[in-house]
Computed example of a mutant assay.
Amino acid sequence: MEYQYPIDYNWSTEEIVDVVKFFEAVEKAYETGIDRDEIMKIYRRFKEIVPSMAEEKTVCGEFEEVSGYSSYRTIKKAKEASEGARIKMD
């Protein structure tokens, strides 16, 4: 990647690692595909760190701006998929 992940320096090191894991999972959904259950587990942890919708929109918007990958569309597709499905973004 030739870009930096959006992070909040008020987050702990563990929280930063978990937010980066979420963005890596979104990248994986676009590049190779990811299991629905795996990305939903990672997303639930992300929401513990970024509980507010406004903050989520800001952070995910920054990520989409630099990467071209939509966290929103990825999670929407994962929520609509059945358990055990594989998520592959176009």
Rank of each mutant, 00 (worst) to 15 (best):
38 E>A: 10
81 A>Y: 03
2 E>M: 13
9 Y>E: 14
35 D>W: 03
30 Y>E: 06
64 E>W: 08
57 K>N: 11
2 E>D: 15
54 A>W: 07
37 D>K: 03
41 K>N: 13
60 C>K: 09
44 R>P: 00
83 E>V: 09
68 G>I: 12
80 E>D: 11
3 Y>A: 08
52 S>Q: 12
38 E>H: 05
40 M>V: 08
63 F>C: 04
42 I>D: 03
80 E>V: 06
53 M>E: 14
15 E>H: 09
38 E>I: 10
18 D>P: 01
77 K>R: 13
78 A>G: 01
16 I>H: 04
19 V>Q: 04
54 A>E: 13
43 Y>H: 09
68 G>N: 10
90 D>M: 13
59 V>H: 02
28 K>Y: 05
24 E>V: 10
84 G>I: 04
89 M>L: 06
28 K>R: 13
65 E>N: 14
48 E>G: 00
3 Y>W: 07
56 E>H: 13
6 P>W: 05
23 F>R: 01
58 T>W: 08
9 Y>W: 14
57 K>I: 08
59 V>D: 01
88 K>T: 10
56 E>R: 15
87 I>H: 00
43 Y>W: 07
23 F>Y: 13
31 E>V: 13
40 M>C: 04
42 I>E: 03
71 S>I: 00
88 K>R: 09
26 V>Q: 00
29 A>F: 07
62 E>M: 11
55 E>W: 10
46 F>Q: 06
21 K>E: 15
85 A>L: 01
79 K>H: 11
44 R>E: 15
32 T>C: 05
67 S>W: 04
21 K>D: 15
